[in-house]
């Protein structure tokens, strides 16, 4: 699947296109098919995203979206060396998803 990501213009937070708007949770990411660049052009012009790009991802057996590249998995979670600063601070195993 193809997923759209970028950073929130004002806060810099990593965001994912969920089909209608932007979410900070990769789990919400929608398959953008071939429409990614078009959606990005609109969202960029409306200042709702900064530095947006389209990535490859797959939906795992658990139904969760997993970006193909490690860099985007780290973006999705947070720094692997600071579990307390990730989106899943209570899950000690969260980092294993990245590798």
């Amino acid at each position: 699947m193809k997923v759209i990501t970028g950073n929130d213009l004002k806060t810099g937070a990593v965001i994912w296109w969920d089909g209608r708007g932007w979410s900070i949770h990769v789990e919400d990411a929608a398959d953008a098919g071939d429409g990614g660049e078009q959606i990005l052009a609109v969202e960029d012009a409306a200042c709702r995203v900064n530095g947006g790009y389209v990535i490859e991802a797959e939906r795992g057996l658990d139904g969760k979206v997993r970006p193909a590249h490690i860099k985007d998995r780290i973006r999705a979670l947070g720094p692997t060396v600071r579990p307390d600063l990730t989106l899943k601070p209570a899950d000690p195993d969260a980092g294993s998803w990245v590798i």
């Binding site: 950073n7 810099g12 990593v14 960029d44 900064n50 780290i74 973006r75």
Partner: peptide, 25 residues
């Protein structure tokens, strides 16, 4: 933020003040 500048226009200005866009922020 008000949309009066594109990122291409703004990026060199923020970089002149040491503000990069990194992975998480």
């Amino acid at each position: 933020i008000a949309g009066q500048m594109t990122d291409d226009q703004f990026k060199p200005l923020r970089l002149k003040n040491g503000l990069y866009l990194q992975l998480h922020a």
